[in-house]
Design a protein around this nucleic acid. Structure first.
Ligand SMILES: [Mn+2]
Ligand SMILES: [Mn+2]
Ligand SMILES: [Mn+2]
Ligand SMILES: [Mn+2]
Lengths: 220, 220
DNA sequence: CTCCTTACTTTGATTAGTCAAAATAAACGT
DNA sequence: ACGTTTATTTTGACTAATCAAAGTAAGGAG
């Protein structure tokens, strides 16, 4: 069995390569895993030996099909656990990522399947992040964000791509949860400010950086 | 935070001293944890340094109040998780011990509290094992067993003190679950056989060793 | 009392995962 | 093209947890 350290390495590689086939840089991986770069080099060489990754020295690293399989399974556990914590245990959506970070390594495939059934086979977690299917298919659709969308068109919020408790709390308190309707009333590149407005609410100012973490779709 | 290894050592010390204040032998701990005795000696000395246990060289080891506190919290997690797996996820009661062995180290106190509420604050797990209270109180009542009880009196099954899947499966298939009514029709010390009979069922033969793992109470 | 058995402890080695700091390679700017 | 910056790799050391095997202490059996 893969240790939880190995599972974390593989999962973060998957997240950092977001669908595509690009190489993940050692630095980015070190940053994501909160370890020093030398540690990543060492671990990646071990993961290459065990056939989970392909290591291109001084360029980066890429998951093999075997490594991707493991990573998808861990990510599926992570996101289904988040669903469980929010929908069944009624926990705060800002707190569940930390919990799931541990639980993703502790639940068996058997428990995973039963959780999935209990929850009614959800396709996204509470943050709108897509849940890999049991067969290992992961939705990789690319969405616009509040920083890139057209102004004044009605939008639907799809996903929040920042798991930090602070940001999620901010999003929640301003009613920008996945599923909500919103539109951008103004975007000023010079000041770096975006103004968003819910159908029945006062305008809300966001930095471009923050707006870029809120994925949207044109309202149907 | 205590590592999961430390949590396992402390939990098993608690289980091996069953309520009382007796010293736990190093050999028994090694057996329970499936490690060699030398490993236990080393770990116990470290646990003594961290104030979790008191080590009497060549005699045994005992939990300090601090160590007992940790152990009770882990045991509470273990048994509540078992309840969840059986009552909510409908898993087989013979399989949940293995699952809980991992999960007991991965769930936070916050999740623990919410699970407890979801399950309606149960007092025992699916095997009849008492669940330590949030305040650290553990029921230490001593029960008779099918090997020690009086013959022909009506009994109620309270608890099964063997977590092995084989034994639990056997118990389940013969309807000896906690809560069921039963009586001992015969006990032969020479042959080491006990015969038990449910109100509406044919007689069942058990070894004294097996009968001793089934705790009972006189039916009310 | 002496020897033996048994449980326990010690010692030395191993594996997984990590960091600090030095070494190296590639890219980059002038 | 040359020196500089930056990312990556290497090296040496450390912690937690483990085992194998050798050493030691106590408690009987005679
Ligand atoms: Mn994790
Ligand atoms: Mn999420
Ligand atoms: Mn455990
Ligand atoms: Mn149990």
């Amino acid at each position: 069995m893969a240790t939880s350290t190995v599972e974390n390495y593989l999962k973060h590689m998957l997240l950092l390569s977001e669908g595509g086939e690009e190489l993940v840089s050692m630095g980015a991986l070190a940053e994501a895993l909160a370890v020093v770069p030398g540690t990543v080099t060492t671990m990646v060489k071990a993961l290459a030996d065990s056939g989970h990754v392909e290591h291109r020295p001084r360029q980066g690293v890429r998951l093999t099909p075997a490594g991707r399989r493991v990573a998808l399974n861990v990510l599926r556990k992570h996101r289904l656990v988040e669903c469980f914590l929010v929908n069944v245990l009624k926990m705060d959506w800002a707190a569940v990522d930390t919990e799931a970070e541990q639980l993703e390594h502790a639940i068996s495939d058997e428990v995973l399947d039963r959780l999935d059934a209990l929850l009614g086979h959800p396709e996204t977690d509470p943050h709108g992040d897509p849940i890999p299917s049991r067969q290992g298919k992961l939705d990789s659709q690319v969405y616009a964000t509040l920083a890139t969308c057209v102004v004044e068109k009605p939008l639907r919020i799809i996903r929040i791509t920042d798991q930090s408790a602070e940001f999620l709390l901010f999003v929640e308190q301003n009613g920008l949860l996945p599923g909500e309707s919103v539109r951008v009333t103004e975007r000023n590149l010079a000041s770096g400010l975006v103004t968003a407005k819910k159908t029945a609410g006062r305008p809300l100012a966001l930095s471009l950086a923050a707006a870029g973490k809120i994925l949207i779709q044109p309202a149907r």
